[in-house]
Design a protein around this nucleic acid. Sequence first.
RNA 1: GCGGAUGUAGCUCAGCUGGUUAGAGCGUUGGUUUGUGGUACCAAAUGUCGCCGGUUCGAAUCCGGUCAUCCGCCCCA
Length: 430
Amino acid sequence: MELKSTKTLSGFIELLPAQQRCFDECAARMQRVLKTAGFAHLDLPAIERAEVLTDKDNWDEIETQMFLFQKGDTKMGLRYDGTVGLSRYVAGHINDLVFPFRAYQFARNYRGERPQRGRYREFYQMDLDIMGIDTLSENYDAEIVATLANAYGAVQEFIGPVNIRIGNRRFWNALFEKLNLTEQQQRAAFILIDKKDKIKDFYDGLVDEIGVDAADEINKVFSNGCRSFAGASSDIDAAITEMDNFMSLLDSMGIKNAKIDLGIMRGHSYYTGIVFEFFLDRFPELGAIGGGGRYENLTSKFSKTKIIGVGAAVGFSRLMVALMDDNKIDLSSFEQPVKAAVLVMGAEQVQYAMGVLADLRNAEIVSVPYLDAGKKFKNQVEFADKIKARFSLIVGENERKNNVLSVKDMLSGTQQTLDIKSTIELLKTV
RNA sequence: GCGGAUGUAGCUCAGCUGGUUAGAGCGUUGGUUUGUGGUACCAAAUGUCGCCGGUUCGAAUCCGGUCAUCCGCCCCA
């Protein structure tokens, strides 16, 4: 019989047990930080109506980017990030929620694009957002960034320290206005600035799009800093003041690893104010490991009420898989979860062994039995060794008759005979 | 959608200037007197060499096509 492939579909991820434990631990720690900051956990549907996911009508074109399908007359698709579903959710439950509304999601998202390194078709993303009706203070922007920084801080022992770069769309909009750029020129300039670090002919490209004079002004932002434009216009001043305020709020919350970098743009067109990206100090080559910003009008297609938000997303799978694949995370602490392997020598001992197992578990000792009692004892010890059990608890005829256990220390190889109570005491102290 | 690379045992790969029964390491199973693992030694099992076609006396090896995977673009809603 021909064997079927055991490989996952391209772009899909699965982890080995130790990796998964590490993944779960990091996910739990980061979520705990968000819960402490009062973010409500939302677990929204993975499938949305196609019209929620896209405004485009060209089914063939968007099918290359998303997973779309049809049941009866309903076109639907898998969500590609948390923001779209959240917008629908908030707009739909506007009377049931208290604003400013803060929520986080930790969920799988799906993209239909062709996979490549660090880009998957199915991945976990952590989204956190604060949304307000009509107004939402820019002070929340700082709170979002500080909260996310703390979430990364909770897993610092695995991923190392992060640094934060802060951009500001408002500043650029004000500058573009001042430079009298057309809408088309603004869009072109946006894209070039966003890709600034990736492309070589940044300046030449700018000149092509918006002319020498404007290109020189934009270059000045990167050479002399945004402050050199102080007084150029009231909008520019307001943007600079906004950034100053933002940075001092971060400082108040103990976040010292942030700096302004106006090259940070973010690809999404919906951002309107502060934008930010997080990077790893130790592995800058991984690129942004999370980011976000302030947006407006994201819910306009669902509600007439104006909802303003600031949010962030963490590419959690991408981050963890990139680090684990290159052995940048030490998994040794995740490889030894079993405290006791209960080895059973002969079917007559099974009943006694099961009682021992229940006692161990009541005492919250992670314990695993080997219940093929007819197997050679050698195989049983080998099993205990392979699962890296700290102790083997041997149950043979003698042990059962005397109501004791042979407790073998798998590191030293030494062995002693103890009753169940003393065994549990020993295991709890190790 | 475009470009590059790769497809050989469960896994990682060698073999590829064409030539008898296709190899290694790891893993798996069994054994080294059967109540004791991590080391060592011995042995065994497993492949239509991705698929289709062509060249040839002869193809894992050369050529064409196709599919798949990986990498890089495009795209990034």
